[in-house]
Structure formats: C-alpha cells, structure tokens
Amino acid sequence: MNRKLIGIVTVLAVVVAAAALQSPTFLSGPSVESLLARTALYGLLSIGAAFVIVTGGIDLSIGSVLCLAGLAPPFLVLELGWPIAAAFAAALALALVLGVLHGVLVTRLDLQPFVVTLCGLLVYRGLARGVTGDASVGWAERHREVAWLVERIPVTDAFAITPPMLVLLVVAVAATLVMTRTVLGRYLLALGNNREAARLSGIPTERTVVVAYAISGALAGLAGVLFVVDSVGGKAASLGNFYELYAIAGAVLGGCSLRGGEASIPGVVLGAGLMQVVLSAVRQTGIDTEIEFAIVGGVILVWVVAEELLRRAWRRRARG
C-alpha cells in the first residue's frame, strides 16, 4: 500500500514537472486553482467508486446519478417552487436511495454489479432527460442563496480556495478513517479479500456491501449538486457523461484492485488528481484536445503495466 502511494506521488510529481516545463503558466495561481477545483469534484466520485471497488464490485451509474441528483435541486426550486434546503436534501436522499437499491439488487438477488449499475446508468440519464425535456437546467444567474456553495475564498491575488475543495478534504479524511480505523472498513477489506471467509466469521456481508453502494451513490449525488452550482447549470444529455469512468480510473490509479480487498483513500484522491493534471497538461501544452481521451487512456495503461512489472520484479527479488 505504501509502495503504491509512493508510486503515485512520484508519477504525479513527474507529470507536474513535465507540464510545468512545457507550459510556464501551468503552475500559475489560476491554473492550480482550477486544477484543484476539478480534482475536488472528481475526487468525491473516485472515493465513492473506491468503496464499491474494494468489495470487488463496480459502479457504472455514478455519472447518471450525478446528473439526476445534480439537476434535481434547481429543477425542484425553480420549476416546482420547493424551498432550497428541501431540494438539496431530496437530491442527496435520492442519490443515497439509488445506491442502496444497487446494493440490495447485488446482494439479495445476487445480480452482477456490472449489470445492475449499467442499467442504472441508462435509466437515470433517461429519467433526467425526460423530466427536464432535455432543456438546460440551472441556477439562473447563480441563485444568490446557493452561490456561497462555490464562493471563492481568496488566499492570494491569484489563488483562492473553493468550498468543494474543503468538502473533498473533509470527505477524504473521513473516508480514510472509516477505511483504516473502523469496523466497517475492516469488514469491507475482509469481504473484498475473501467473501466466504468473512461470511463464515459472522460478518454481515450483505449489509456491508449495501453500505458501500450507498456511499458511492451519496458521494455521486453530493458531487452532482456541487457541479451544477459551480457550472451554473447543465443539460441532462451531457452532464456527467463518462464520469463513472473517470471515477473508476482515478480509483485504479490510486491503487485499488478491481479484484477487491485493496484501497487507500489518499491514493485514490491523488489518482483523481493525476487524471486532472494530465487533462490540464494536454490542454495547456497545446496538444490537440481532440485526442485527450487517448492520452488519458494511455497514461492509465502505462501506469498499470508499470505497476504489474514492478510487482513481478519485487516478487522475484523477494523469492530469490
């Protein structure tokens, strides 16, 4: 685990250094601020994905849950006249309930996580588009009552902290503590490693897996609410497209194994950050943005191949 953390920090440092050499503005205040702001939102998604991945499952519905829960508050407030607090509460509750639903289907009916959450991906986006009529939904002129959610807190003239960054910090610290210091975290790691041994030890494996999907759903909802405030609004057809893949990629870069049983939350946050650094670097160093997917995919592939080769080398050294 520590080895993986050192690895991701090293890669992050190398990519940042390379980008800074290529583009002098890469380490400027506004650039770093936008980088961290985006990392804050994607980091939340990756942490949620990590909770599911550690159980050996997968959550493909993250992007669609984000879209549905993110568009719900402005829709409820502006179209239906709900109070703001109630609209936010309803959006987060909806995301949580969808996560619980995935978990129940995966455990009680023993359905495959891939299939369950793939259906979620399709259904929630379809619902969001249907309800909003594919029109752009958003906080008109950034509704005064919600603007504080993304209000910049200036540190220097060129750099400010935004509330989503603080939200990520709180969530990341809490998630790290849950994973390493609580009964729930120990259960997640144990059942991700060996579900049968966990079951035979009297661990409530089904309930624990449901909690993991609930956390993923809730964090996708939270990120969605913040996204929509931050970007003033969005369209159901595009908001959150592919975000589940970014979330999973961040978790994998951060050291999660899709076989389950392994997760380091700090690693996952750094993984999400690395994704954003690579994307920013692509945009700022003048590489054609059309090929950014190819570059992101390439970076992930290089990283997992390198990791596997290093692991084999270590094992060979440990043996011989």
Binding site: N194, A197, S201, I203
Partner: peptide, 17 residues
C-alpha cells in the same frame, strides 16, 4: 479459500469475528 483472509494481517484475521 474459506478460512483465512490471506492478504490481511494476522491481527486483523484474529479479531475479524
């Protein structure tokens, strides 16, 4: 396959139940 959680520590295995 069914007894030990191999990748976890001896301590975590001992207190698992």
């Amino acid at each position: 396959e069914r007894g030990a959680v191999l990748r976890m520590s001896a301590l975590a295995n001992t207190t698992l139940a």
